[in-house]
Design a protein around this nucleic acid. Structure first.
Length: 506
RNA sequence: GCCCCGGUGGUGUAGCCCGGUCAAGCAUGUUACCCUCUCGAGGUAGCGACGCGAGUUCAAAUCUCGCCCGGGGCACCA
């Protein structure tokens, strides 16, 4: 059948079908399966074993956005069941980072608060013969697990297991002497289901509970119980977490099963989020710390002048998928620029400054608005015959040609030598003249740090990841407060980091 | 090795479930021009992609199979 015949048949059988409506692309995050408005609960489950990164920020944002959309509840829950990894400063990092981001949570808790409840569930598994105490050493466990064979402890009677359990709670056993294993299936293709450990002794003080407990639940049990306690309906998390074991534990304990939506980790090209890669940089002092503006930590991004709204908009725009991805900083920074543009004061910055004396320069007191369109106030500058302009700008100008000192007047370069001179060339705005920003002798010296990716394409540390540009800024710079972001025209948006030091955002 | 899960322009994503509206949308990037006393922001136009192969079908980015490539899991970590 030819196309025209098909069309004829179509309009005959289904009149109107030949004028299809354009489908609209999805805007925002996709709807959640089985989500009921007003009855959804989500969770932010960081392990406080490192600083909050963009990866966390994005995952948190997704959960928060859904909380808003479904009018649900959001838990900030610290997964602190490994006292050896957890530190107080990291809890705070997630709290302050989330606040900064604008992610508001309704409830906050630590898994370590609920150890007794988790013990109760563990005890039940033991009583019901669904778990057992095992004293095999780690190597033996591994070997038997690989072979798909059970050890002699699997069939211990419940009261014998309970006896060990009580001893464990009373700290009668050292680390490694016993573990509690959940009876799964020693033949399962998934090794993690072959009688996984759900409790182990960790002989190390916990930052919150001190020496009170030494028997700690592992992640899967803790999570299954906690999600029940919090009434979580939807779990949105990245795909390095497995679900089968938790599901089995829920069944064994009669707990509800939340919806689970998984997505790939949020990676940025040249800036991995992984602690394994980042820690050596900090330890070897290749970066100034975890809050270095090159770092993908929330503190790093903040110092770089990335606005919380930019992270939110970015997250909304890229969404989440199961595809592996490596984001380019350009999208985030582009969003950031658009947010910054209408609210950032313009200040003249002269990199690599060269002194320029202008003959016949009229003394002026110019008032220049801080923003070309929006009312952000203005500053007044007193000018005489001495200026500074950028070395790079000067090179672009031939002797005898005219350029304009932005927002001031025109000037003709009379000598380009090592001590360049110019002469006043009228106020009238001439079409096609180059316009350069400038500074007067009342200028302030600044250093601008320009962050770049931490790793090059070969995966090696980028030695050139923090370029430094020195120059002069006009006097109004002294009125800025730490954290203020301004635009240096023809240079970029910069954030005042510390006295005399700016960080280039983009 | 075993078990999952993915592959749409340089980058990110929409579309895939329910085949035709897709000679593939949007953003970023890039090029040119317009606007602007900024190389920012804004505007207009251009560039650029369905991993490969087979099958089903009148019709495949979309369904099926095989292959290739990538990621993750296989802890007394979370």
């Amino acid at each position: 059948m030819s196309l025209s015949q098909q069309e004829a048949l179509l309009s005959q059988k289904y009149p109107g079908a030949e004028q299809p409506v354009q489908k609209e692309g999805r805007v925002g995050l996709p709807p959640l399966p089985n989500a009921v408005k007003g009855k959804a609960a989500f969770r932010l489950p960081p392990e406080p074993s490192g600083f909050m990164t963009v990866g966390h920020a994005m995952a948190f944002t997704i959960n928060f956005l859904y909380r808003q959309e479904y009018d649900g509840e959001l838990w900030l829950r610290f997964e602190d069941t490994n006292p050896r990894k957890v530190e107080p400063r990291y809890y705070e990092s997630f709290r302050s980072g989330s606040k900064w981001l604008g992610v508001e949570w309704d409830h906050e808790k630590n898994v370590s608060d609920d150890i007794e409840t988790i013990y109760a569930h563990g005890r039940r598994l033991l009583e019901e013969g669904k778990a057992y105490a095992c004293s095999c050493d780690a190597d033996k466990v591994k070997k038997l697990r690989f072979e798909g064979k059970a050890c002699e402890h699997r069939d211990s009677p419940a009261d014998a297991n309970l006896r060990v359990w009580v001893e464990l709670l009373a700290k009668k056993h050292k680390e490694g002497d016993y573990v509690i294993r959940f009876k799964g299936d020693m033949q399962n293709v998934n090794y993690s289901l072959r009688d996984t450990n759900i409790f182990r002794v960790i002989d190390h003080p916990h930052p919150l509970t001190g020496e009170k407990y030494s028997l700690w639940p592992t992640y899967d049990l803790a999570n299954a119980v906690e999600d029940e306690i919090c009434g979580i309906t939807h779990i949105l998390r990245s795909s390095e977490f497995r679900n089968e074991l938790q599901q089995l534990l829920r069944e064994a304990l009669g707990l509800r099963a939340p919806e689970v939506i998984q997505f790939s980790r949020f990676n940025f090209k040249g800036t991995p989020v992984s602690k394994r890669l980042l820690r050596p940089l900090v330890e070897q002092k290749l970066v100034s710390g975890w809050d270095d503006p090159r770092m993908p930590t929330v503190e790093g991004l903040k110092r770089r002048g990335v606005l919380p709204q930019a992270i939110r908009d970015f997250t909304l725009q890229v969404g989440y998928t199961k595809t592996e991805h490596e984001y380019d900083w350009s999208i985030l920074l582009s969003i950031n620029r658009k947010l910054l543009d209408p609210v950032s004061k313009r200040l003249f910055f002269v990199p690599d400054p060269v002194e320029l004396s202008v003959k016949g320069a009229p003394e002026r007191k110019v008032t220049i608005p801080y923003h070309p369109q929006n009312d952000l106030g203005s500053r007044t500058i007193q000018t005489a015959g001495r200026f500074y302009i950028a070395g790079g700008d000067l090179k672009a100008i031939k002797e005898g040609s005219v350029f304009r000192l932005m927002d001031l007047y025109n000037v003709k370069l009379t000598s380009a030598g090592p001590t360049p001179t110019a002469e006043y060339a009228g106020d009238e705005l001439l079409e096609g003249t180059r316009k350069f920003q400038w500074a007067t002798p009342a200028r302030v010296e600044v250093k601008v740090l320009a962050p770049d990716v931490l790793f090059d394409e070969k995966g090696e540390f980028n030695r050139d990841s923090l370029k430094e540009v020195r120059g002069y800024v006009e006097e109004a710079f002294t009125k800025l407060k730490a954290g203020d972001i301004v635009q240096f025209p023809r240079f970029g948006f910069c954030r005042l980091d510390s006295p005399g030091t700016m960080v280039l955002s983009a």
